[in-house]
Simulated scan of single mutants.
Amino acid sequence: MRSLLLIFSKARYFAPAWVFTSLNIWFGTWAIYIPSVKERLEIGKADLGIALFCLSLGVFTIFPLAPKIINKLGVGKATWFGVLLCSVTALFPLMAPNYHVLMASLFFFGMANGITDISMNTLVTEIEKEDKKNFMSAAHGFFSLGGILVGLGSFLIPFIGSPLLHMGITVAVVLLINVIFYRNYIHIVAAPVEKEPFSFGLFKPLLLLGIIGFIAMASEGAIVDWSGLYLQEITKAPEAFIGSGFLAFSFAMTLGRFLGDGISERLGSVKIVTVGAIVAILGYGLVLSEHTLLAIFGFALNGLGFSVMVPELFRIGGNVRGVDSSQGVSFIAGTGYTGFLVGPVILGFLAESSSLSLSFYALLGAAFFVLAVTFFLRSRR
Rank of each mutant, 00 (worst) to 15 (best):
P158I: 12
I186L: 10
V83N: 04
E233S: 09
I272G: 07
L175Q: 05
G49V: 05
L156H: 03
S353Q: 12
T274F: 14
S250M: 09
V101H: 03
G365M: 13
V83H: 03
I157P: 04
S353E: 10
F297A: 15
I215G: 11
I118E: 08
G146R: 02
F200D: 06
I296P: 15
I148H: 01
L65T: 01
A17W: 10
G141Y: 02
W80I: 11
E352C: 04
L175A: 08
K68H: 07
I69H: 03
L152P: 08
M111G: 02
L293D: 11
G339L: 08
G339W: 04
W26R: 00
G58Q: 00
M111T: 00
F181S: 10
S353L: 13
S105R: 07
K68W: 11
F143Q: 09
S354M: 06
E233C: 01
C54D: 00
V174Y: 07
K133P: 01
R183C: 06
L23G: 14
I346Q: 09
I296L: 07
S87H: 09
G243I: 05
L267A: 10
G336A: 15
I332P: 12
V19H: 05
G318Y: 09
I115R: 10
P93N: 00
W226Y: 08
P238M: 01
F135Y: 14
P163Y: 02
P197I: 11
V308Q: 07
I234C: 01
I177N: 07
V287P: 03
L267F: 15
S227D: 01
G74N: 06
K133A: 03
M253K: 08
S227T: 04
I186K: 15
V323P: 14
V193A: 13
I223T: 14
V275R: 00
G334E: 13
F203L: 15
A112K: 00
L23K: 01
V174M: 10
S289D: 05
F143W: 15
F155Q: 12
G146K: 00
T292P: 07
F360Y: 14
L358N: 14
L48F: 05
G243N: 02
S9H: 10
I177G: 05
G305Q: 07
S307P: 02
R380L: 11
I316R: 02
I346H: 03
L301G: 10
P205F: 07
F349C: 03
R40C: 03
V342E: 00
K77A: 04
A240L: 11
I169T: 11
S56G: 05
F369K: 12
I242H: 06
G245F: 02
F155C: 07
W30S: 08
G151E: 14
A222E: 06
T338C: 09
S264G: 14
K10V: 06
I157G: 05
L175C: 05
L65W: 02
K129F: 09
M167E: 15
W26Q: 08
T122A: 09
T235F: 02
D261P: 13
A280I: 05
L209Q: 03
S154W: 08
A190P: 00
G153K: 06
A191S: 15
I188P: 06
E265H: 12
